[in-house]
């Protein structure tokens, strides 16, 4: 190896290459990615955060006014009511995913990872299928199924003698958000399933064998041996769910439009952001307030990621296997 010094990469350069040529190599490889990423991702994000500290004057110019936009958003009733409504709805949206989607994903992954299971690939492939489809398609499909006009959902409930439970779930203030959340759960359950399934497969068989030799049955082996080993993955699934849920928009827009009706009962941060920024039947678009809401979303997502990195990730260290 020592003789190959001619071509070795050294500190700040390659032997036999002038500093200028080395810089050209670096620029050639790095410039495209760095330029596109900076211009279309980092710059817009920073610019949005900066815009949230400015407000539009009557002459159309923008003037710095500190945190006034945030104060307005959080205290002025015309802004704070929709904001807190969307924020609390978004928390409900997230909690439904955490309490329904991720446990179902865990259950399916646990079953799929059982040894000697027939049709494993078929189950895995088919259950993951809805995740592949566009949210728009899923939204409309469920709208049709739940529609009283078509009556599919009602027919199914009646078959089990539960016909009285049926109602226009998507149209009622009290049930619209829960219904949409469950549709989203139905579509995306494949993601926690696949992530947890992968983690379960990575657990060495000897550990499970040892546990069964010690007299644990399958359930005990799962809860006492496997589950503790996949906590890091469950932490990762949780933070992904958090980021995706607080960034969600498509499903509610596709099913309910920008007004996220009835009476904003399904409004979440993403739809509020869209409505404020672009305007709608009720109000004109507002760039500063749109940027302010986007910045709030950024802070919320940042909090979630930080909690994950500093509390969960640190305690669990890196992946154990």
């Amino acid at each position: 190896m020592e003789t190959a010094s001619q071509g070795r990469v050294q500190q700040h350069g390659i032997v036999g290459m002038s500093p200028g040529a080395y810089a050209r190599v670096l620029i050639f490889f790095l410039a495209p990615a760095v330029l596109v990423y900076t211009l279309f991702s980092v710059y817009p994000l920073l610019d949005t955060i900066i815009s949230s500290f400015y407000s539009k004057q009557n002459d159309g110019s923008y003037v710095y006014n500190g945190v006034a936009n945030f104060v307005t958003l959080l205290t002025d009733p015309t802004w704070s009511a929709p904001f807190w409504n969307a924020f609390i709805n978004n928390i409900k949206f997230f909690l439904i995913h955490m309490l329904v989607q991720n446990p179902i994903g865990l259950l399916l992954a646990a079953l799929l990872s059982l040894p000697v299971l027939r049709f494993r690939t078929a189950y895995r492939t088919l259950i993951f299928m809805p995740t592949m489809l566009s949210v728009v398609i899923i939204g409309f499909t469920w709208q049709l199924i739940l529609s009283p006009l078509w009556g599919i959902a009602k027919m199914f409930l009646q078959a089990f003698g539960l016909g009285f439970l049926f109602g226009p779930w998507l149209g009622e203030e009290s049930t619209a958000l829960i219904t949409i959340s469950l549709i989203s759960v139905w579509q995306f359950v494949g993601i926690p399933m696949i992530l947890i399934y992968t983690a379960l497969l990575a657990i060495p068989d000897e550990l499970i064998d040892a546990a069964t030799v010690d007299g644990l049955n399958q359930f005990q082996a799962f809860f006492h041996v496997k589950l503790p080993l996949i906590w890091p993955t469950i932490g990762l699934v949780s933070v992904l769910t958090f980021v995706n849920n607080f960034n969600a928009f498509d499903l509610i827009y596709a099913m309910k439009g920008a007004l996220a009706g009835p009476n904003f009962s399904a409004d979440i941060m993403g739809t509020l952001f869209y409505r404020v920024f672009f305007g709608n039947q009720l109000q004109l678009g507002d760039v500063s307030m749109g940027a302010t809401i986007a910045t709030m979303m950024f802070l919320i997502i940042l909090c979630g990621v930080m909690i994950y990195l500093f509390l969960i990730q640190r305690r669990l260290q890196r992946y154990a296997f």
Partner: peptide, 23 residues
């Protein structure tokens, strides 16, 4: 630079939409 590039893994680009549309 590696850290700079990895920020985008967790921060959704959608949040910069106000400025993206302007750009």
């Amino acid at each position: 630079l590696a850290i700079f590039l990895s920020i985008g893994i967790m921060v959704p680009i959608r949040l910069g939409s106000v400025s993206i549309i302007q750009l």
